[in-house]
Design a protein around this nucleic acid. Sequence first.
DNA 1: TGAAAACATTTTAGGCTTAAAACAATTTGG
DNA 2: CCAAATTGTTTTAAGCCTAAAATGTTTTCA
Lengths: 172, 172
Amino acid sequence: MPAVNDCSKMLDSETKVVETPEDHADELRLWLRLLTCTTLIEGEVRGRLRQRFDVTLPRFDLMAQLDKAPDGMTLSDVSKRMMVSNGNVTGLVERLVESGHLDRRTSETDRRVQVIRLTKLGRAEFRRMAAEHETWIADLFAELSPKDVRELMRLLAKTKASAQKSAARRRP
Amino acid sequence: MPAVNDCSKMLDSETKVVETPEDHADELRLWLRLLTCTTLIEGEVRGRLRQRFDVTLPRFDLMAQLDKAPDGMTLSDVSKRMMVSNGNVTGLVERLVESGHLDRRTSETDRRVQVIRLTKLGRAEFRRMAAEHETWIADLFAELSPKDVRELMRLLAKTKASAQKSAARRRP
DNA sequence: TGAAAACATTTTAGGCTTAAAACAATTTGG
DNA sequence: CCAAATTGTTTTAAGCCTAAAATGTTTTCA
């Protein structure tokens, strides 16, 4: 059951390889399905966070990053970890400092750098939310067996590596 | 190699099941990896669309929906398919009509309904972009074997079903 | 029939997000 | 040393996005 554009058909004809448009429909479908899953789960988590804790998903995500870094992080670190733009972080942090969840100070060794940390309030609230959040995620993935989970982890690791290489090829 | 919270340990003790906090770390890690993959690929596609065609990803996505529906779609259809809010679609459509890519008219049989279609220009531009877009996706997933792709499709289908059930449980 | 429910869309208010330019501080290399 | 490059952050302008309320239309059903 060879695919229509199976490369074996073109091994002896370099021009064919160039001229025949490849069939990438499967990869496209895979991408759309990946996107659907993420959008679905993300929307569900967003709604539950809002309903239960009146907090937005980006705020929660930022607090999650900081909870793992007791000594704080720089805005750049946060930006890279969350894979969002610098300016985005500036605004998010502004609002979370304003609401008393974050503490922000200029680094003593490099005056360009801003270090942010969770306040006591911020940490307490985050821990409370995170505990419940974890059960939501477990429920959303409930139909996957432990083996499914392992296998998905493996394939997504491969996907991530592939995408990173592709991105690096374009932007070296 | 049973997991710490293997349920078999609690079959004869109902209270244990309630009192022992379950370990959902694996599901949480899986969710974060899924999100990372999507964010990575989405960001890459967004950047390429902007650089090559000066178009935004949401605009592209909306045109992709319409390209599959020669007779047009209602705004609600689009909203459901794209999994975004109604108000969001209203704004997107406004801008795409403005730029001449979309045609919008009120349904003749139901004056509540707005039907939108790609214009000739919109379709031509979309087809041009879509052809290149497909090669980007193929490149981003290049390191996955056909078997990997199939397996991922299967597991993500299962994930989608699981998440949909979970969402339905909360919001019946 | 005609009020109530359901539906499709728009509006509103606020927040999120990006890319690019601007600004400030530090590091580097001649 | 010091000009140039680099780095970290903020600002800007524009667009994206959501939830909820408002508006207009159609359907339901008592």
